[in-house]
Amino acid sequence: MIDQQLVSEVIESQPFPLLFLTISGAHLYGFPSHDSDYDLRGIHVLPPQKILGLYPVRETIEISEVEAGLEIDLVTHDIKKFFTLLLTRNGYVLEQLYSPLIIKTTPEHRQLRAIASNCITRNHYYHYQGFAKNQWQLFTKKNVYEVKPLLYIYRVLLTGINLMNTGRIEANLVDLNQEFNLSHINDLIELKKAESEKAIFQNTDLTFHQQEYQRLQGELETAFNNSHLPETSSAKPELNNLLLEIRKYSR
């Protein structure tokens, strides 16, 4: 984890108050390498004079920098934009919100986590199915096969299957694989963690991984067809009330 002094410096350097800040990326997914950057994700709250004025609003803040030898990639959205994304089938914002690697939290963060459970729908299937498909196409186009993209494919598929079956967000591949028990995933994780972000396969059985990719896509589709999750989110009224309450007290 990032040391506390660096965390404080990152938080204090932000131009607007933060509702929450969590760690995403390889650290959340359970396979960081020694050179993995820290992907920080969260919500900032724009003050009324920013959102009510005539000037363009900076809804998303993106910062990439190196601090104390660590590469930090920070992305935060204004609260309204983040809430709007929650009401779509965007799995990324759910994973950021429910990340157990919490840098900063607030009572409103905890309230939002409770409300957002009603944002989870069967249609999040399309997020995970589509992301895995795109990543597989990119992975197989290259002449050199890296471990990281393949781990992302497995992580996305297992997260999607688990979500359809349980309604819970779990982005950590190590924890997910305790249920799926796929030995080749453990081997990939160990290889990635022992080497670097750009670790490559020395001997790649692409046919095997293609068969696994297709099998897990099939499992994801079956889980979607059998899922008891709702078709649409019911959280909009509560999110609207929380947004108005937070805006009322923002400065």
Rank of each mutant, 00 (worst) to 15 (best):
F20Q: 07
L87A: 03
E195F: 04
Q137W: 03
F16R: 00
Q14M: 15
S33K: 10
I161M: 08
L28K: 03
V66H: 00
H124R: 07
G218T: 13
T166K: 05
T60K: 11
N240H: 09
P48N: 05
L242H: 05
Q210A: 09
A199H: 02
L173M: 11
M1W: 08
A116N: 10
E62P: 00
Y152G: 05
Q111I: 07
Y128A: 08
R155L: 06
E212H: 06
Y98N: 04
K80C: 02
H34R: 09
P47L: 12
C119I: 03
S99W: 12
T222A: 13
E65A: 13
L229N: 05
A132N: 12
N240T: 15
L40R: 01
E62T: 11
I63W: 00
A26Y: 01
L112A: 09
I200T: 15
T84S: 14
E62M: 04
S24M: 01
F16D: 06
K50V: 11
D187V: 09
S233I: 03
T106Q: 00
M1N: 07
I169L: 08
V57Y: 07
L158C: 01
L21D: 06
L151R: 07
E197Y: 01
G42H: 09
Q4A: 12
L86T: 08
N123Y: 12
T204W: 13
Q5G: 13
F208K: 15
Y38F: 15
G53Y: 02
K142D: 15
E238T: 03
H109S: 06
G218M: 08
C119N: 08
Q217I: 08
T105Q: 12
N118S: 15
I246S: 05
L244R: 11
K192F: 06
L97S: 10
H27E: 05
E221R: 14
V57G: 01
P100V: 13
H44R: 09
G42V: 10
I61N: 06
Y55V: 08
N203A: 11
L97W: 10
S64P: 01
S24H: 11
R113S: 05
Q214W: 03
Y126H: 14
H184R: 04
F131R: 11
Y213G: 00
L242T: 06
